[in-house]
């Protein structure tokens, strides 16, 4: 009746597993969500193509680099999609958070596990889209070396954690405001700009770049792609990875503190 199991799964792994199943149950909207994001890839592709018409390189990015950047940036951003934030916010707003609260779980870790589960499915769809668009149409480059592929993978995982934590923090605002949808849109926009999804950091105006380069959100897209394209010297690489790790730790501590406070301040609604 229940498959053959001899031991219970570790609890957070089990949550991730069920979340992945949930994303599969909603495969249609998952796929639509990712595909929609790729419409942006096309728009930006043509914009950049026009911009590169008279020049071979901008701020160190060749046209080959830029094409690759555009596809992968949106591909990465699609990996932790809207569903995580949406679900987190919904549980807070409907008061269903109560149910998750009466479990021997760390709430923040629970949400991260959930994000990981969704990410598995959304990431797979996104990977397929990247390959599809990347190979048939945009002709993206491969990682510049084995080392950079490895750094990219490591940095990507840290970036996904960063994004999940950030989305979690924003979703906590749902304890205080009624406008969940507004928050979601705002969060989306902030992430796209400050992660470097729309424009690489080195092409930003100085004032914006100086802000963006110290914020955690660059770790979501910009940092992994810097590794992928082989644009980081070894010493820079250590600094960038160190910064990602530091931000994940800081955000985790912050998220836990904020969660406790949010839960204590805003009494749970209804019933």
């Amino acid at each position: 009746m229940t498959g053959l199991r001899t031991h219970p799964l570790p609890k957070y792994l089990s949550i991730a597993r069920v979340s992945a199943q949930e994303a599969i149950a909603y495969r249609f909207s998952t796929i639509v969500g990712v595909v929609t994001i790729f419409i942006w890839v096309l728009i930006l592709y043509f914009l950049w193509q026009a911009a590169y018409a008279g020049t071979s390189s901008m701020a160190g990015y060749t046209w080959d680099d830029m094409r690759t950047y555009v596809v992968l940036a949106f591909g990465i951003n699609a990996m932790v999609g809207w569903r995580v934030g949406y679900v987190m916010m919904a549980t807070v707003r409907t008061g269903n958070v109560v149910i998750e609260y009466v479990r021997p779980l760390n709430y923040c870790l629970t949400q991260i596990s959930r994000a990981c589960g969704y990410c598995l499915v959304e990431g797979l769809v996104s990977l397929v889209m990247c390959l599809l668009v990347g190979i048939t149409f945009v002709d993206i480059e491969l990682p510049s070396s084995t080392a950079s592929a490895f750094l990219f993978a490591l940095s990507l995982v840290l970036g996904l954690l960063t994004k999940a934590l950030f989305v979690f923090l924003v979703s906590l605002l749902a304890f205080w405001t009624v406008s969940g949808l507004g928050l979601m849109w705002m969060q989306q926009a902030v992430i796209q700009v400050f992660s470097g999804t729309i424009v690489p950091l080195s092409l930003m105006p100085d004032w914006l770049r100086s802000i963006t380069s110290v914020l955690p959100l660059r770790g979501i897209v910009s940092t992994p792609l810097t590794f992928y394209l082989g644009k980081a010297e070894p010493l820079d690489a250590i600094g960038l990875l160190g910064m990602q790790v530091a931000w994940v730790v800081v955000l985790f501590v912050l998220a836990n503190a904020a969660w406790r406070r949010a839960f204590d301040v805003a009494e749970i609604q209804g019933g």
Binding site: M1, T2, H7, P8, L9, K11, I15, V18, R103, P104
Partner: peptide, 15 residues
């Protein structure tokens, strides 16, 4: 059944 199993995992209930 998946929810039930998840709850079993959360509380580490022996199989």
């Amino acid at each position: 059944i998946e929810s039930l199993r998840l709850i079993g995992d959360i509380y580490s209930v022996p199989a």
